[in-house]
Write a protein that binds this DNA or RNA. Structure first.
Lengths: 203, 203, 203, 203
DNA sequence: GATGAATGAGTGTTCATTCAT
DNA sequence: AATGAATGAACACTCATTCAT
């Protein structure tokens, strides 16, 4: 409301930067573990080892902490790097896809708990939705680009829709892999997913 | 400590049944629209046109309302009916899949907003997770069964993993279809999804 | 408030009388066991085997139920009878006192739990206080009267104050006897009490 | 479930100590005047001149406020001091007793209203009962000890029972003295009480 | 910069009481 | 007369946010 007098602090000193970082780390852990709504600011502060008030020195409110954590995790650039590293030439397409999926599964930056919370908050919060949409678009673009380079091997025609659908499938399966213990080993699921994607996309 | 008579009321009279129903309907709408945490019991009562206390006459607490809505929507039996109605003989496999998906998309009982809320609450609430797990398992079993009947046409070997992965993909795409307006028509996504599934499963 | 239209029902029929009685009995038990504030009208009705509304057919409100139970237990007349039955001539004074005390202890109409609740409500409720005062006065008068008849044997001069103090002591000890299990047998306490009173009052 | 950081605050700073104290004072007054159940937390906070939340910063819940007030008033040590100061040598036994009683009546720390509330809550609340029992025992022990020192002058044999009965009588009479306006002057009652106790205990 | 005590609006829940049937 | 569903004011308690130190 009143933004005239009370601005969020932008840390310049080393100490400030570290404080802000501690808060982010603590919050991410707690959000992931207990969810956004069941985590209160006092806990975040305590976990970070700072005073309650310090949270509000660096963040406008509790949601801003969430937003900053989520926004900072750039999935797109992560996917981009992963795609660039994949060498389609040395393997079959299916093997390349599997390698990519395995890497994604391993290096997922956001904890599964946190991602679930994102899924929920998207529904009721425009800001969260905006960040998600931006990241999702970037990832799709990246995927379209990567697939497009192997044009001759492709079987799909509507590349945009294909990328979208693949992304959906991957997200959800990754999610399931890490969260649930469905009595089904992660590698079985990744194998299946790789099969599905490979058969869908490539000749 | 002492529960006394304070049991949840089980409506037998017509009036009671209608009241409970009004509460469920109102709550589902509000949960879907604003999320569980941003909906308070007063709003639910107001929307249902009853008094605050009436909510607690029929439900132990706010979460119980949520649980009852979610638990009542039997996805598995819905999927079962849809699967039974599908006639593989008259169409290509791909066409049959598409028809199934379209039906699922159209007749989804739970609103997308509500389902998103479920996704979130699973993370922090054991009861929600339990219902979800039960429903997910039932659906997978149903899918494994349906696919298994066309054994000779199948390409996949690990049917359980396949069913799991397919379910994940479908859930997420359906979700995306109804929630986001990604500038991508629903039919494009369903087409893509049908392609992906058909090519994955069948020869 | 509105006494014009909605009067408390005065039962004339047998059925009505029995209903009212069941409510009184149920309420007395619950008040004694759990206290006035921790007992709700639904419980009273349930325990009495009647509908919630019936309580309000016979009593203005919850407090009225309490008041009626308390008011009905006429301690004074009970004490009167006990005093009349005591035969000072056949025993020593001390033995007569003890016999009286034992009878009071045995035939106490109000349960200890209920009496404790009375003690509390007197503080904040004028009506309860009024009933108590009336009963206490009546008992004191009765005691003064009884003692006065043995004038020649008396040692005390201020009979009114003596009766008051004796009554206090008896009430509290009776109370303690029945409630606490102080590792001290009731007969030890009654013996002590009889000694105290006898030595105080009589030569 | 998860307590998190939500511990009761232990005030170390001057400000905190004063705040907690203001709450205790306010609560004691209100509990005494209106009773525990008719006093709500908002009133306590208002009377103390603090915010509702501050009550919960220093106390787990409303009952804890009550318990702390009650527990803090150490009757036993008060009685101990009073007993120690009494000089039996310079007065008759009866005069010493009277002096003791007068002092007790004058310096009673807990207001009569509060004590009455204790009486009620003992019945339904284990914690209140526990504190009361502890204090009562301590007082009885103290009394037994004090009386025991004048062994040769004693008439009673069962000292424990005697102490119990005397304590009961004193409590109730003190109570009556301060609460009721029974048209009977306090000194008349104290005189009577002193007579009763002195004649009972001493030769 | 940092602290943590203080705030107070907001929430879930209870329950005495009413009233349509 | 009796029922029990419905009411809604009231309460205990929480927690995001502010601010004096």
């Amino acid at each position: 409301m009143n933004q005239g007098t009370q601005q969020t602090r932008k840390p310049v000193q080393q100490r400030g930067i570290r404080t802000k970082d501690k808060i982010l780390k603590a919050a991410e852990g707690l959000f992931a573990e207990k969810g956004f709504h069941k985590t209160n600011t006092k806990e975040i502060a305590a976990e970070a080892g700072v005073a309650t008030g310090s949270v509000y020195a660096y963040f406008k409110d509790k949601k801003s902490v969430f937003l900053e954590i989520y926004g900072a995790a750039s999935h797109a650039s992560f996917l981009e790097r992963a795609c660039r590293d994949i060498d389609f030439s040395e393997k079959t397409n299916r093997e390349a896809i599997l390698a990519l999926l395995q890497r994604l599964a391993k290096e997922h930056t956001l904890s599964p708990g946190f991602r679930r919370e994102v899924a929920a908050m998207r529904a009721s919060d425009k800001d969260v939705e905006a960040i998600h949409a931006r990241q999702h678009d970037a990832m799709r673009t990246q995927l379209v680009d990567t697939l497009g380079r192997r044009e001759k091997a492709l079987r799909v025609t509507d590349l945009d829709a294909a990328a979208f659908v693949i992304l959906c499938a991957c997200e959800e399966v990754m999610h399931a892999c890490s969260t649930e213990a469905p009595g089904m080993a992660q590698n079985r699921l990744l194998d299946a997913l790789a099969d599905m994607v490979a058969r869908y996309v490539f000749r």
